[in-house]
Amino acid sequence: MISPARSWREFPQRYRLEAARCEGCEKVLYPPRVVCPDCGGCTFETTPLPREGKVVTFTVVRVPPAGYTEQSPLPIALVELTNGVKVMMQVGDLADPEELEIGMPVRLEFRRVAWDGEAGLIFYGHKAVKG
């Protein structure tokens, strides 16, 4: 499972959806990088991602990996946010996974994404829910 150090390192992105805006070309990177893949710029300012978007593609994982089995079946979507940034995330609160479709509007809510059994850490982040 994910180590405490790794989960802690990722909090800004998991908890606050912090992205990096390239000061050279304005491209918004999530997760942040050392170098902008578009213009090669190395200076960025922190900007939070918007919490609305739409489904670009999706699946329903019926055989999830360890740490996710209690949430099976696991709907997961690639979501394009209103600023054009695409993020992969689980889709929560679906009465029926068949509701998922390309183009579905979603918004992001703070949820438990995974957990290390009964005694280990809980990994929080965002999930998409029907918008």
Binding site: Q71, F110, R111, V113
Partner: peptide, 16 residues
């Protein structure tokens, strides 16, 4: 609560 909801997640959304 769903498997992905708890006191923390609900508190965050309520505070937002």
């Amino acid at each position: 609560p769903g498997a992905d909801e708890d006191t923390v997640t609900m508190s965050v959304e309520a505070t937002r």
